[in-house]
């Protein structure tokens, strides 16, 4: 972690917090009308949301597919929703939104993670690679080529996640056997059932020496 960065941050947050505290104190209690009790309780603490709405985004600095960006995000926005809805990078897919399918897999600082369970605001200063960032111009990444060659998909919806995960699986050293690949790719569900072909694609890239 960059020391300078972490030293600067709290100050900024303090500012934001006092602003929120002010807003809280000055707002008027509104009627409770909330379905789940937990939300009701939270809403009581979350007074004046309407007033504070304009202040509720925080800038976050990200490098996405090699391009530096500063984005205003709500703390509750996931990286997945920011990619898809704010940046129109729809190659990263929403399959469950609960971390149970792997369709939203991206690389953050080179590691495969689930963008649906990652708050965008927590990715400050990080490098995000999505499926759109794999090809170099017209030249596909070897894993993309292997997926086409081995027909590692049908509907194509889980495919970006499978490809991002497959590349990482090799880099992590978990692609040494078919069984190994199957175990370490099990977080990526394919309902069309292209699994054996996906495994073949990963094996081929692994054996060909992956350059990513």
């Amino acid at each position: 972690m960059d020391k300078n960065k972490s030293n600067k941050k709290p100050e900024k947050e303090d500012h934001q917090e006092s602003r929120r505290d002010f807003l809280k104190a000055s707002s008027i209690l509104t009627a409770i009308a909330v379905a789940p009790a937990t939300v009701a309780k939270a809403a009581e603490y979350n007074l004046g949301e309407k007033i504070s709405a304009a202040f509720e985004t925080t800038p976050v600095n990200l490098t996405i597919n090699g391009v530096k960006k500063q984005l205003p995000v709500e703390p509750r926005s996931t990286l997945l929703d920011v990619l898809r809805e704010q940046l129109d990078l729809t190659g990263t897919k929403k399959g469950c939104d609960y971390g149970q399918c792997g369709a939203c897999t991206v690389h953050v600082n080179g590691q495969r993670v689930l963008s649906c369970l990652s708050l965008a605001v927590m990715q400050e200063g990080k490098e995000v690679t999505t499926i759109e960032g794999l090809a170099k111009g017209d030249e596909l990444h070897p894993m993309q080529k292997a997926f086409i060659k081995h027909d590692g998909f049908q509907c194509g919806y889980c495919t970006p996640g499978q490809i991002m995960s497959g590349i990482a699986c090799i880099n992590e050293g978990h692609a040494n056997s078919k069984e190994d690949i199957k175990e370490f790719m099990s977080g990526n569900i394919c309902r069309c059932g292209a699994y054996p072909n996906i495994v073949k694609a990963i094996q081929e890239v692994k054996n060909g020496g992956q350059k990513s």
Partner: peptide
């Protein structure tokens, strides 16, 4: 034959 829409699907360009 490789899928005619394969490239779109592996690059994230296919629009759902």
């Amino acid at each position: 034959l490789d899928r005619v829409d394969g490239r779109l699907k592996v690059t994230g360009a296919a629009k759902y």
